[in-house]
Design a protein around this nucleic acid. Sequence first.
DNA 1: GTGAAAGCGCTAACAT
DNA 2: ATGTTAGCGCTTTCAC
Lengths: 338, 338
Amino acid sequence: MTIKDIAKLCGVSVSTVSRVLNDRPDVSPAVREQVLAAVRESNYVPNNSARDLVRTSSDAIGLVVRGVSNPFYSDIIKVIGREIDAAGYTMVMQQIGANEDEIARGAIMEREKKLRGIIFLGGRWDYSPEELGPITVPFVCCSFTNSFGSLDRRSYSSVTIEDAQAAETAVGELLKLGHRRIACLVAETDDRSISELRWHGYVKALLEAGIEPDEALVARAHSFNMEDAYAAAAGLARSGADFTAMFIIADAMAVAAIKALADLGREVPRDCSVIAIDGLTFSEYIRPTLTTLCQPTSRMGEESVKILLDVIEGRSEPRHVVLAPELRAGASIAPPPG
Amino acid sequence: MTIKDIAKLCGVSVSTVSRVLNDRPDVSPAVREQVLAAVRESNYVPNNSARDLVRTSSDAIGLVVRGVSNPFYSDIIKVIGREIDAAGYTMVMQQIGANEDEIARGAIMEREKKLRGIIFLGGRWDYSPEELGPITVPFVCCSFTNSFGSLDRRSYSSVTIEDAQAAETAVGELLKLGHRRIACLVAETDDRSISELRWHGYVKALLEAGIEPDEALVARAHSFNMEDAYAAAAGLARSGADFTAMFIIADAMAVAAIKALADLGREVPRDCSVIAIDGLTFSEYIRPTLTTLCQPTSRMGEESVKILLDVIEGRSEPRHVVLAPELRAGASIAPPPG
DNA sequence: GTGAAAGCGCTAACAT
DNA sequence: ATGTTAGCGCTTTCAC
């Protein structure tokens, strides 16, 4: 069943049918009705490939996800998927490994799928304009931005929280309670990722409080996953390093760290306070309930889609939204022992 | 950049380029190399719409996810996405609400996107053949099957664990330790979902052990989410019902329940043992570590994609794979107190 | 082994 | 208001 068949069925030309199908105004009501009826009866569905071929574009929005293991992303993916559906677009999702190049993948997808736009969820923070050449559709970076790169801010969009600021706030909470020996659990400190950014916040908070950061108090996990976080936290605890509190760059890592500390006989928050960033639902159900700075997941997903569609549909220029994380008080921090 | 440009660039015809691009054997090695080089250098990506138009099909596999909030699904989605990518297909994901009709959505997607196949992740267990009329491509039900429906088993595929059996095994572990008053936390017992199925296993295990199921020991949560599970578990604990152990149909719910019990002064496993089904990573990092029957997430995702592609590509008939859950011993069960 | 040419189903000028 | 027609970029006979 093609547009030709419908045309024949109605005794009109294909262009007339096409007009009806595309809601063009220049069709007589009578013909329009007749065509619509024929379409309904014959269960005709337009061939999207043919449409896309002609229009050289589709209704597809690409979602390129890097580091899917992060449970924080699962929530965002859900929200983004829902919003894209609701707007009548289609979500095409691709996951890429930690070492793959999201730009290259995005560029290929853009062409293959004739994407209208791309949302990058997780990625490098240091793109250069040259690298981005292959990407010609609007894109938004969700949960990260180009802090370390040289991109023209007017050429892309982003939705983030102030990561360094959030880390400062978190460490600030510990300082307020009187902690001075504050350890830090990160993934890396030089990978130009969210980990590095949050670590900068940690360092800054200490310096501003007149505390010299101590390299012996920084634990580095090989990745963001719980197993590695557990190992890194356990390593730090066993190292004999002296600390009364710990700032951890992600909830999932904090949950693992709390377990590691407990397994080594250090109770949180009695023997060591723990504060993190992310605000997973999950963290409210461990003991002690994790004190954490929540990323506004839903809003981040919603904003990302909204901005992208605004740009795609020509309603606005690219923009950068920075949302405020919110402190969710748990029971994992307390004044230092003694 | 089109196939024509590449042809011109290489001084050959478009058909030759097409042959190279489609790995046809009848091209001289020299020309093949030359074309490949040109493709690489010019960053040429074939236009999928044009391809699909000619081939009257696409490389899209639909993933229809119902009830995305389940963290168990996040892992599976990741695996499925990876496998689909690896096989050179494209994943088009749609999420649907708890009350939407996945069949209707799948049918629309099938036509609009020219899907080659569909994977349903979560869905109803009681389809009828009539309902499935609109779906004409192969599909596989992942993590559920048609236990309550009337589908011809040869008309679809499924990948599941033996849910009722898993529940029996779980409850069996509690019985082995000497528990007799075993409570149960479910979402619903009559919603024809995984919840009902696992509940059946619970009841069966009790009956076979000569224990009369006690309605007072069944807690029903409004949903699978942690908040509702917490409330239901707390309600049961407060009800004064007498139980020494609890079988919980999902890890996430169990984590919430353990917290609820603890908040009411009942320590797990000292005062109450807890066993669940799912095997989330997460559950290994709570205290006590959750004892649970793990669903083989990766294998389930892999099998689902494998079966679907086998059927799509004509290598096999639809099939039903039942995988065995594996007991992951934690520290949440112990002999009954006293 | 390679090329020429006929579509795939649709949209969008351009005519009428 | 409606019809005619030229492609969109690709695959695939069918020649050579």
